[in-house]
Write a protein that binds this DNA or RNA. Structure first.
Ligand SMILES: [Mn+2]
Ligand SMILES: [Mn+2]
Ligand SMILES: [Mn+2]
Ligand SMILES: [Mn+2]
Lengths: 229, 229
DNA sequence: GATACTATTTTGATTCATCAAAGTAATCAT
DNA sequence: ATGATTACTTTGATGAATCAAAATAGTATC
């Protein structure tokens, strides 16, 4: 009623805004640069570039992020807080789906993608308690704390491992159902020890061996999706 | 493409449509008439009458229901099927929240109201299995079967019980948090036996006694919300 | 530096869901 | 039956989210 009042969604993010925030945060965490390009936003959210631009402008209006035309976006503190919480929801839900309901890790991502918007803070808390406060989701991703902090993932991938070394799988950076099925097949699971039999940079291929299994090879493109320590 | 194509939501209900369908079904089950008045639709969904009219027209366009101007709506077979499924989701989720996560029965309704739209058929099935295929939710409401059938509730309420009789509580017909807290307080819970000490039609009040508790009274308005057998 | 290609923004349109307020039909009461 | 009240519908408008296609800015290539 006073002089200025924009009766818009200033503080309650819509599910769509939640998705944008979470996705932007994830890109920010993966890459180290703080500005996420609009093209990236558009492809990550599977919308046309025009849609991304328009959404991002409204999100800036509501204080979720800063928009630098033709350069990209970066989350504000407010936006980052919500984004972190979404990541927490998503990963706790994935954990629940696997641990409690017995889902396969290749099918949980899409499910959590919807549920994360419907679950309240109260249910989230009970769920966290019920699951015994897990610190990692089924893909090995760290679950952000209630306070919004997250463990930095390893910067090492299977791709940049040299011949001869043995490493431990930390997490899988791909939610594609088929890739996850392949990884499970080969027992390329979080926590597992993997020996790099041979890494051939020129041929773009790496050969691996996991205790008790046959050796197998994979291309660098795929190897890059496996974080190791 | 061809001559006629209306690229509207013909078969995939939006969450809003799901809510309308479920609510219309519930009114249909409670009352016995097959046409639900627009005023009822509007109040049940907490929207203005104009909104209800406009939504209902689109829903008719998409085949979810039949709209009889100035008379009301009734679900089509297609609409009833989805509505029944929503009721199933809602009630299974409520059961989960109480049984597994330890929520109080007075706080679960709002939670389920959101989750019901986010849960997939797959998760629903796993949940049903995990819970051991319950037939009633925490309020004593029958859970519709996967095939879309539902047990008819009792037509008897505490209100129309005569002095002296003893009945068993079947369910509570009110999702109001405060009323549910009151009911739990008095141990007016599904399955409990209640003796009607006195029913005074003129004074509009009924006095009850539950094994091991002090007798207490409640008005007919409230007594009407307790289904008994 | 002019041209070509790529990334991004703008424009114009659409659907869904909603409201306020105005208009109309139906029913109730005297 | 007339007038009042209540129920419902229509109208006009809005915000959110989206797309297709046109316009523009930026970068890379020759
Ligand atoms: Mn999501
Ligand atoms: Mn994950
Ligand atoms: Mn709902
Ligand atoms: Mn219930």
């Amino acid at each position: 009623m006073s002089t200025f009042d924009k009766p818009t969604n200033q503080n309650v993010p819509t599910p769509t805004v939640e998705n944008y925030l979470k996705q932007i945060l994830m890109v920010t965490l993966e890459e180290n640069g703080s500005r996420v390009a609009m093209g990236k936003v558009a492809t990550e959210l599977a919308v046309t570039p025009g849609t991304a631009t328009s959404m991002v402008k409204n999100m800036e209006r509501d204080g979720w992020l800063k928009y630098y035309p033709r350069q990209g976006v970066s989350l504000t503190r407010k936006g980052r807080k919500v984004a972190m919480n979404m990541l927490r929801r998503h990963r706790l839900l994935e954990t629940f789906l696997v641990e409690t309901l017995g889902f396969d890790w290749s099918e949980i991502h899409i499910e959590a993608e919807e549920l994360e918007h419907a679950i309240s803070e109260k249910v989230l808390e009970k769920l966290d308690e019920f699951l015994g406060r897990p610190r990692y989701d089924p893909h090995g991703h760290p679950i952000p704390s209630k306070r919004g902090t997250i463990q930095r993932p390893s910067s090492q991938t299977l791709q940049n491992c040299d011949t001869g070394v043995t490493v431990r799988v930390e997490s899988i950076l791909d939610q594609e159902s088929d890739f996850l099925k392949f990884a499970r097949e080969k027992e390329l699971l979080p926590g597992k020890a993997v020996s790099v039999i041979r890494s051939e940079k020129l041929a773009d291929v790496i050969t691996l061996k996991i205790e008790g299994n046959e050796p197998f090879s994979m291309g660098f493109r795929s190897a890059e999706k496996i974080l190791v320590v």
